[in-house]
Design a protein around this nucleic acid. Structure first.
Lengths: 110, 110
DNA sequence: CTTATATACATAATTCACTTATGTATTAGT
DNA sequence: ACTAATACATAAGTGAATTATGTATATAAG
């Protein structure tokens, strides 16, 4: 498990990017995918996940579609066009940040 | 300038690593070096810098030496042996985190 | 010579993205 | 029948940062 402090500031980027790569997904599904992609090292908490999804939706970055499976409700999220621009921005920002850290810490990152 | 949120959790690592690479340094000197190494993209604020240096000192990771230049006081910081182990840990932790992010976001980091 | 900027430290108040805790309800496995 | 997994949501609390403020010396510019 990575230090939660390091995770700070990366949650929006993660959500937007997995939605870009995988089309529409629902909250719980995202937690499972991120868990898998990170080899158990990033375990998204619901207290952070849902409020962030709601926020991105309120900002018009995500749109939702509620689907009922039996008696169970799933809320699918997908990117809006504005969300699509935001992903690129956020991912580039993170890559730039990581490169800067490489320079400051004088380490190779590959 | 990088998003301050991304910086969170990296400050201790930065301080420890520049002290490891450059021997003893004082606070203001660290801010200038980090500014230079990051091409103006990481500007350490005093409100974060000094309390963090004090905390690392209190934990026995750093030792200090006060030097008077004219009427000006400088507080030099350097790593203790325990600080030296901590740097390695912290840098490895950050590298691991960055690799995980690369996997989750499916991006190349070099 | 005086005014602004840079150097150099320090700490208190505030912010905000997260964690932790709690709640509700359905579905599947044993 | 019970437990764990699935699936959502929100309120309370935390802590590392930002912002603001304070003190003081040194230097450059006009």
């Amino acid at each position: 498990m990575h230090s939660p402090e390091l995770l700070k500031g990366t949650l929006q980027t993660i959500l937007l990017k997995v939605l870009k790569d995988n089309g529409r997904m629902y909250g719980y599904e995202i937690t499972q995918l991120v868990k898998e992609l990170s080899a158990e090292r990033i375990l998204l908490t619901e207290g952070a996940l849902y409020p962030t999804l709601h926020k991105l939706e309120a900002e018009g970055m995500l749109k939702t579609e509620v689907v009922t499976i039996g008696k169970r409700v799933r809320k699918y999220y997908s990117l809006t066009p504005e969300g699509r621009s935001l992903v690129k921005e956020r991912v580039n920002e993170l890559i730039a940040f990581i490169k800067t850290m490489g320079n400051v810490l004088q380490v190779e990152l590959n």
